[in-house]
Measured scan of single mutants.
Amino acid sequence: SAVVMEEGSPGEVPVLVEPPGLEDVEAALGMDRRTDAYSRSSSVSSQEEKSLHAEELVGRGIPIERVVSSEGGRPSVDLSFQPSQPLSKSSSSPELQTLQDILGDPGDKADVGRLSPEVKARSQSGTLDGESAAWSASGEDSRGQPEGPLPSSSPRSPSGLRPRGYTISDSAPSRRGKRVERDALKSRATASNAEKVPGINPSFVFLQLYHSPFFGDESNKPILLPNESQSFERSVQLLDQIPSYDTHKIAVLYVGEGQSNSELAILSNEHGSYRYTEFLTGLGRLIELKDCQPDKVYLGGLDVCGEDGQFTYCWHDDIMQAVFHIATLMPTKDVDKHRCDKKRHLGNDFVSIVYNDSGEDFKLGTIKGQFNFVHVIVTPLDYECNLVSLQCRKDMEGLVDTSVAKIVSDRNLPFVARQMALHANMASQVHHSRSNPTDIYPSKWIARLRHIKRLRQRICEEAAYSNPSLPLVHPPSHSKAPAQTPAEPTPGYEVGQRKRLISSVEDFTEFV
Rank of each mutant, 00 (worst) to 15 (best):
E307Q: 14
D357C: 01
E360R: 06
R458C: 15
Q429T: 12
S231F: 09
Q391Y: 04
F350L: 05
S469I: 11
V404L: 11
L501E: 13
R458T: 15
F371E: 09
L381N: 02
T509P: 13
V236A: 08
S466M: 13
L280G: 01
E462L: 09
Y274T: 08
L286W: 04
Q259Y: 02
K453H: 13
Y276T: 00
T281Y: 07
E462D: 13
Q310W: 09
P414M: 01
Q293R: 13
V408N: 01
K290A: 10
L283E: 00
D291A: 13
L253N: 02
Q457I: 05
I353D: 00
Q310I: 11
H451A: 11
R454L: 12
V255L: 03
C460D: 14
E488H: 13
K394E: 10
D217H: 11
L455R: 06
L267V: 04
Q484T: 13
D217M: 15
P471N: 11
L264I: 12
E233P: 04
S433M: 08
L253T: 02
R344Y: 09
L381G: 03
R456H: 12
N386R: 00
V505W: 07
R393G: 11
L225D: 13
D361H: 07
S389G: 09
I326R: 04
Q391R: 07
K221R: 11
A251Y: 03
I250H: 00
G492Y: 07
T485L: 12
Q419D: 06
E360D: 09
I319K: 03
N348I: 03
P442L: 07
R418N: 02
A251E: 03
S477T: 11
Q241K: 12
S403I: 03
S403F: 04
E462N: 10
D303A: 07
L449G: 13
R498T: 13
R234T: 13
C392E: 02
D395W: 05
F232Q: 08
G365C: 09
D410N: 05
A483F: 08
I377K: 02
F415D: 03
V351Y: 00
C292G: 15
V495Q: 14
L399Q: 05
V374C: 09
F279C: 00
G398C: 11
P468S: 11
L289K: 13
N261Q: 10
V430S: 04
T277S: 12
L253G: 01
D439H: 07
N436E: 14
Q237G: 08
D382P: 09
R458L: 15
I266N: 03
N261D: 08
V408G: 00
I353E: 00
H451G: 08
A251N: 03
V495R: 14
P468V: 11
S260G: 09
T379Y: 04
A483Q: 11
A322M: 10
V388I: 12
Q230I: 11
F311L: 04
S244W: 15
K343A: 13
W315Y: 11
